[in-house]
Amino acid sequence: MIQKKICLLGAFAVGKTSLVARYVKSIYSDQYLTTVGVKVDKKSITLNDQEITLIVWDLAGEDEFQKVQMAYLRGTSGYLLVADGTRGNTLETARMLSQRTSETVGQIPFILLLNKVDLIDEWEIDQRAIEECEAQGWTVIKTSAMTGEGVEESFTRLAEMIVSMQ
């Protein structure tokens, strides 16, 4: 059985933990508890008739008081960058984290998740910003941890990208 470590990175309160809870346990809660350090979960999936266990590292969000600890990224095969569509500055945080991750672990597969698509009417991240990311070669997926939209697809796409690089 193959095991692959993946990480979720992003600003604080963008929904990283909720995305993991939705993906691993199919649950969602409105209650917000900031993540301290890192939470590690796992989920087994079948990809092209091969069983793969994703070891999911949900890192504490970056804010003005604390930076993401790059040491947690050791050994990661890919990562999900998470931004909150209703907060435009979280996309800039995602860009900076992608840069720092590349400097730390090199070029590995990643996907940008624009979370909280259920609140699309309140979004600050517009189509032009999304197209700028896509023009750089980024894979961008709109997600909602609340409704589940795009969540399964995101993790599966990342796993496919990781496996195809082997």
Partner: peptide
């Protein structure tokens, strides 16, 4: 790494020590 899942990917170490604080598992 195969048996204790959160150790996956951590080896081999690149230095003599690796410290990862506040890891929360199952």
């Amino acid at each position: 790494g195969d048996q204790v899942y959160f150790l996956e990917g951590l080896f081999p170490l690149e230095s003599e020590r690796l410290i990862l604080p506040a890891i929360q598992t199952d």
